[in-house]
Design a protein around this nucleic acid. Structure first.
Lengths: 195, 195
DNA sequence: GGCATTCAGAGACCAAGGTCTTTGAAAACG
DNA sequence: CGTTTTCAAAGACCTTGGTCTCTGAATGCC
């Protein structure tokens, strides 16, 4: 028989695959842990040895978003206006959230990030998103188009938080055109960080 | 015996009082619905005829914040710089959230606002907070200090959402000085909405 | 007053996320 | 090898928010 470790990895994968498929079909709230263990022919015991919660396994889906950011940066490396870069990045992000992930997924993530037990992966400063924003703002500072009375860290973290407020509200409402709203916000923010 | 309606109101009050007291002592997550019904000498049936969820009753506590905003506006009516008014308002707000309500309460509210069933009371544009912000921004526009290429509605709603992003992050993290962070954000935002 | 109807309230019940105990095979040991 | 230890996995069990059914007193109607 396969080694214990190999077997465990296989079980983990079976659970993960089943879960992601079910989440895609029915959304987080309409998938029971028992649905996942049934579909993957495993058990609660197996589920909770590999994942700490139903939410944690759901996050796996969200992590793809980092690939999106990295791909965007690569694709737009030629663009040398940081302001323009940031604007396009976030409009693309808005479409990605809306069309690829879907409001329901984002809502679930934003909700669960506030659970006391969670360590907040989304606003981890090491994530590609922050690195990219930071690089652009630094570039703008060096070019003299962005203000330098506040450090890059402050400007970029404030930028990110303002954007997050917009995404949060989008999750909480119907009739909210996130692309349009983000455009407006960035209009203001860019004015606020210009030299 | 008291009329049915009177009796019902009394029961409602008993539940509400017991609940708020328990929430204050132990926080939302550590209070069971059964704790509330035990303390108030009522029952699940009574609880759910008067409130739709454990969260809904918790919101009652939060609604006091509107009194805070109204009091602030009254107290600072003499201040005629909208920029200064907004800055002071939000620093006072930061302290109120931190010292009066507490991070845990705010976190719970921000979490539950994203529940699909909730109608978002917090970002209801009729709330005093929005009215106050809107009035100040309008005042600034009329005085020629704030930009007029975007309508008051846009400026104020973007303002509110950016602030909300900051509060959200404060809830999600330890080691986050909300007063300092808000100061920084407003520095940028005010620059962004100035004429 | 007598009868039908309504409705606040009690509490059994249900659903579903998460925990605990148990088991049996694989690894480690000698 | 034989024995002990470890540990993935199974599934019974617990917890707790919320629902459902039932009851009995207040209200409405004649």
């Amino acid at each position: 028989m396969a080694s214990r470790q190999q077997q465990a990895q296989l079980t983990r994968k079976k659970i993960l695959d089943a879960a992601l498929e079910l989440f895609n079909e029915n959304g987080f709230d309409d998938v029971r842990v028992s649905d996942i263990t049934d579909k993957s022919k495993t058990s609660k015991g197996a589920f909770y040895t590999h994942f700490n919660s139903k939410y944690e396994i759901f996050l796996e889906k969200f992590k793809e978003i980092d690939d999106f950011y990295l791909a965007f940066e690569k694709e737009h490396a030629a663009l040398d206006s940081p302001a323009l870069f940031l604007e396009r990045l976030h409009l693309a992000q808005a479409r990605y959230l809306r069309d690829e992930l879907g409001k329901d997924t984002v809502r679930t993530i934003y909700m669960n990030l506030l659970r006391p037990s969670e360590k907040n992966f989304v606003s981890d400063p090491n994530r590609p998103y922050f690195q990219i924003v930071k690089r652009q703002i630094e570039k703008g500072q060096q070019a003299g188009t962005f203000r330098i009375d506040l450090p890059v860290e402050s400007l970029s973290s404030q930028w990110a938080k303002a954007i997050r407020g917009n995404v949060y509200d989008w999750c909480a409402h119907d009739n909210f055109d996130i692309e349009e709203e983000l455009k407006q916000l960035m209009n203001i923010l860019l004015d606020g960080i210009k030299a």
